[in-house]
Design a protein around this nucleic acid. Structure first.
Length: 765
DNA sequence: ACCGTATTCAGCGCG
DNA sequence: TGAATACGGT
């Protein structure tokens, strides 16, 4: 055991060994924060703590999974796998499932995702005849979400004169009403949204003292990662759970708090010592990740912030490269320069693609980077964007599963009752909704017993509804008799979804069908794995031997695309926002778009605290790098379709000059004429480039049609190569002669529809 | 019911 | 600019 602890430095070891009473660890970037958390859990287990008594809360599922793997390596599987480790949401969803009855929910409640919440809000706004320009789903959900994060219930919201006045002043007086209706609808649907998982946990512990005592006893040792990004609800839940033993250890870095806009409260970490006067504080200040230049440059930026806990990050690593500053004329040129630089560095130093990450402030910036990388045939992966579980066809099928498990799930019901089309249209749905509202019953109750509710529809429609109800009920009956995969497959085909997608032979349709197959594969994999043993008191006695569909649904309700592991990620350059890069590290980091009004964002300029958050964001970006940071800005950039002139970011000036290397040369010289007629030529080139990358039929009249015989040889199944898109497989063809088109799936960039006359495809053997 | 066109909107996003 | 959605015609 001591051998384990010998792997730690002095401060890390002190933090790990302080297992009694409240502890705060301020862990600078790259200082071994995760190491402390994992070793602390391992140490507790070695000291004989029961794994079931350890609660470790992380920021993402991925962090939880990785931490668990590391603990398993330290102490072995048997103990480690029983530690309660996960995100706030996943842990407390689990708690709520077993305690739901106390707050009037069934244990199989649905978790609404953001999409469900927005749809519901949209429906409510429409029903109440409110202006959907004023009450946009985004705004309303944001408002409700921040209320919930502050533990303000709908009732409290409507009883609070100050809040109501605020809404009135903002010309949005109906928000309280919408919040209340939203809450009632969620309840009626036996659904909780993400914020409810925290809000309801808080009130469960507050209002049921036996529940509080139970979980205080259960969670004897509490660890919280990324404490600087916890919101008020999370803070209060922890406070309640830790109130007795105060055996709580929080780890974080105030300098890396970047989620204030979402309700994270940096004061939670700044005030820890006030909340727990006996708290011991440890500072991890030695950075093991980055070079001296990077560490010192990062320090020189963060000192500009007023709100912070004093610390001095240092490293024993080599001096390393200076921070390189790159200037470009346009956003596209910026992409080219970054891509070239990656290409050169890879060649010079024999590096793989995964040594590089390109970080940006907004997702919209990814395009110019993508295009440039594609031109150089550098494989990349974009993080963020549309995730697998957000695809329409996947959500549709999942909605059937949700409805099967929880008939009251109204968002699922509305989604699938007429998909595939079965003649239950808009008018019928509207009537059902009105009846449900008037009788204060769920949509399911109404369609299950239309006579009882005097549902006024013609007999044909009633028949169709009855068929639908019978089908869903029959699915339900099989929840306990079939394993997850068998039932999932059955639902996919009996619902008609498989048939509907199969009949669509467009490339998009084929891809949708494949996505469904992929989902079913995932369920199959799940079914074949053994159920992880749960703690004695939580085991549901009547669980069948096989894993069921509702277990699968619970498993995936809280996962996001960041949790899906890309098997080929190792061979790709990573593109992501700085927010998404939190917690990650790469040898080479490119921070692009370092311009005023973009980074710092224009919305942040109004207040000091917002600007400080932007500065912390920049700090996070720089400290992701191990070897070298390149920061880049463009003098002009397309934003919302307009060419805008940009100035370098103020953050560049804040970097201590001795760590900064200024541009050596401009790769593309700015011709002097640009100054006299500045914008037009740039726009022209830019437009052409964009089109070239989007579709293939813009080579114009100069395009040389390919040999007819080659076109004829292009048939589904063969492998082809495109000079820009790389290798791919032909999925389908349509048309003939000059207008023959092929759908090709490219390994690197996905599916494309190509006009063969122009696409210079090479046939591979 | 479905498709093409008009309109709108645009910050970062855990679960 | 471009995507996502609303609308209006067939």
């Amino acid at each position: 055991m001591d051998k384990i602890l010998d792997q730690l430095n002095k401060e890390q070891r002190l933090a790990v060994e302080a297992v009694d009473g409240p502890v705060m660890v301020i862990a600078g970037a790259g200082s071994g924060k995760t190491r402390v958390l994992t070793f602390r859990v391992a140490h507790l287990l070695n000291l004989g703590a029961d794994p079931f008594n350890i609660l470790a809360l992380t920021f993402t599922n991925k962090a939880a999974r990785e931490m668990k793997e590391r603990i398993i390596k330290l102490v072995g599987n048997a103990d480690a796998k029983n530690v309660w480790m996960g995100t706030f949401h996943s842990i407390f969803a689990r708690v709520l499932r077993s305690e739901a009855h106390r707050i009037g929910y069934p244990g199989n409640f649905t978790i609404y995702d953001t999409d469900d919440s927005k749809r519901l809000i949209k429906a409510i706004v429409k029903e109440q005849n409110l202006d959907d320009k004023i009450y946009t789903p985004n705004y309303v959900l944001g408002r409700i979400s921040s209320a919930k994060s502050s533990l303000i219930t709908a009732e409290a919201y409507n009883a609070n004169e100050e809040i109501l006045l605020q809404d009135k002043m903002a010309a949005k007086p109906q928000l309280g009403e919408i919040y209340q209706t939203y809450k009632n609808r969620c309840y009626r649907a036996a659904a909780m949204d993400f914020d409810d998982l925290l809000l309801n946990t808080y009130f469960l512990l507050k209002n049921f003292s036996d529940a509080l005592i139970k979980y205080q006893k259960k969670f004897k040792f509490i660890l919280v990662d990324e404490y600087q990004d916890t919101n008020h609800a999370q803070y209060m839940i922890i406070k309640q759970l830790a109130a007795n033993d105060e055996n709580i250890c929080v780890v974080g870095d105030d300098a890396q708090s970047i989620y204030g806009f979402r309700g994270a409260n940096i004061q939670n970490i700044l005030n820890f010592k006030r909340d727990y006067p006996d708290a011991r504080e440890f500072k991890l200040e030695q950075n093991y990740r980055s070079t001296k230049s990077i560490v010192k440059a990062a320090n020189s930026i963060i000192v500009n912030n007023k709100d912070q806990i004093f610390k001095e990050i240092w490293t024993e690593n080599e001096e390393g490269n200076l921070i390189q500053l790159v200037k470009s004329a346009t956003d596209n040129e910026e992409g080219t320069m970054v891509a070239n630089s990656i290409f050169e560095t890879e060649m010079n130093r024999q590096l793989k693609h995964d040594a590089f990450a390109i970080l940006y402030r907004t997702n919209a910036q990814s395009r110019s980077m993508e295009e440039a990388l594609r031109r150089l045939n550098i494989p990349y992966r974009i993080y963020g964007g549309l995730s697998f579980y957000n695809r329409k066809e996947v959500k549709d099928l999942l909605a059937y599963y949700r409805l099967t498990i929880n008939h009251k799930d109204e968002e699922a019901l509305k989604r699938v009752i007429n998909y595939p089309a079965r003649g239950i249209g808009k008018t019928s749905m509207e009537k059902i909704i009105v009846v449900a509202d008037q009788s204060k019953s769920s949509l399911w109750d109404v369609i299950e017993q239309p006579v009882k509710f005097a549902l006024n529809l013609n007999s044909g429609t009633l028949n169709k509804i009855s068929t639908f109800v019978t089908m869903i009920k029959s699915f339900r009956a099989q929840l306990i008799t079939k394993n997850a995969f068998d039932l999932a497959k059955l639902i996919a085909s009996s619902s008609g979804i498989m048939k509907d997608l199969y009949e669509d032979k467009t490339p998009e349709g084929i891809s949708r069908y494949e996505n469904i197959e992929e989902l079913l594969n995932a369920i199959k994999e799940f079914s074949e794995k053994e159920r992880e043993l749960q703690e004695g008191e939580d085991v549901k006695a009547d669980l069948p031997e096989f894993r069921t569909l509702d277990e699968f649904m619970q498993d995936i309700a809280l996962i996001t695309d960041a949790d899906i592991q890309d098997k080929n990620a190792t061979e790709k350059v990573s593109l992501m926002t700085i927010h998404a890069a939190k917690g990650l590290e790469f040898p080479y980091i490119f921070i692009v778009g370092m311009e005023e009004n973009l980074f710092p964002s224009i919305q942040s300029l109004g207040s000091r605290s917002d600007l400080e958050e932007e500065r912390r964001l920049f700090y996070v970006a720089i400290t992701r790098a191990e070897k070298k940071v390149t920061i880049s800005y463009a003098e002009s950039r397309y934003r919302w379709g307009n060419l805008t002139i940009c100035e370098p970011s103020r953050f560049i000036d804040e970097i201590d000059k001795q760590y900064l290397e200024f541009p050596r040369r401009a790769i593309i010289n700015k011709p002097t004429q640009v100054k006299t007629q500045p914008q037009k030529p740039i726009i022209h080139i830019d437009k052409k480039l964009k089109k070239l990358n989007k579709s293939q039929n813009v080579y114009g009249s100069e395009a040389i049609p390919f040999d007819e015989s080659v076109i004829e040889k292009i048939i589904p199944g063969i492998e082809v190569e495109h000079n820009r898109f790389g290798r791919g497989k032909v999925i389908g063809v349509e048309g003939a002669g000059a207008s023959k088109k092929a759908a090709v799936f490219f390994k690197n960039i996905g599916q494309k529809q190509l006009l063969l006359k122009y696409a210079k495809l090479k046939i591979l053997d």
